[in-house]
């Protein structure tokens, strides 16, 4: 079974915001919400890097752990999805998320924030695949069509890579080896820390 992951190669990202736009358009995300964002570090200084970030679909997802109504679930592909019908807009997932992924469509009085919205790895929600309800609430379900997230597909420099973890890391490793610098895979230790430890264990020298 595949384990879906995002990886943004900061040596390649040119801060074009194409991924943000692609996502917003594909899923017809409500006003004021961007599931993805591009952050530029050291802007205008030596060592400037840009990174595209959205929900990283963590192995041990903090949002999932703190949700009072238990509205999150993780698919067999490792994608973290949520059920908007159960969401009460309490904002806890935003407190917990390391990547600031959860977004809320409204800011009413008395802390009313509406149903949380976040990146679905283009994998919809709990409703039937390609149903109208799924489209309305979560946007398109590309994974069910055998396609990968549009943000990565549209990335002009192929900085943003999405897909099965083994393939994603193979591509990244190859790039790092070829150019001889710029490793790091921003956010991976935070999002997939557990997996990393597993791999360390597997590679341990035999005695």
């Amino acid at each position: 079974m595949a384990r879906m992951k995002f990886l943004c190669d900061s040596e390649r990202c040119i801060e074009c915001n194409g991924c943000v736009t692609a996502c917003k358009n594909e899923h017809e995300v409500p006003w004021g919400i961007n599931r993805r964002r591009v952050v530029t570090l050291n802007d205008g200084k030596p060592g400037e890097r840009s990174i595209s970030v959205a929900c990283m679909h963590c192995s041990d997802a903090p949002c999932m752990a703190v949700c009072p109504t238990d509205c999150f679930y993780q698919t067999a592909d490792g994608v973290v999805l949520h059920n908007k019908d159960l969401c009460i807009g309490c904002g806890y997932c935003f407190y917990a998320c390391p990547f600031g992924a959860p977004q809320y469509p409204t800011t009413n009085n008395f802390g009313g924030r509406g149903k949380m919205d976040k990146c679905t790895f283009c994998n919809g929600g709990p409703e039937a695949d390609h149903s109208e309800a799924e489209l309305q609430k979560y946007g398109r379900n590309r994974l069910a069509e055998g396609k990968l997230p549009l943000c990565a597909e549209m990335c002009s420099t192929k900085a943003l890579v999405a897909g099965d973890a083994d393939q994603v890391s193979a591509i990244y490793r190859e790039r790092v080896m070829a150019r001889g610098f710029g490793s790091g895979a921003p956010g991976w230790a935070t999002a997939y820390g557990e997996q990393k430890r597993e791999r360390k264990g597997q590679n341990a020298p035999e005695k």
Partner: peptide, 23 residues
């Protein structure tokens, strides 16, 4: 925090580890 274009400045923070402490 870095800078982010066309979105609230607070979104420039890439990783907030305090969230995990809170959790």
């Amino acid at each position: 925090a870095g800078i982010v274009t066309g979105q609230p400045a607070a979104r420039g923070v890439l990783i907030q580890s305090e969230g995990e402490a809170w959790r």
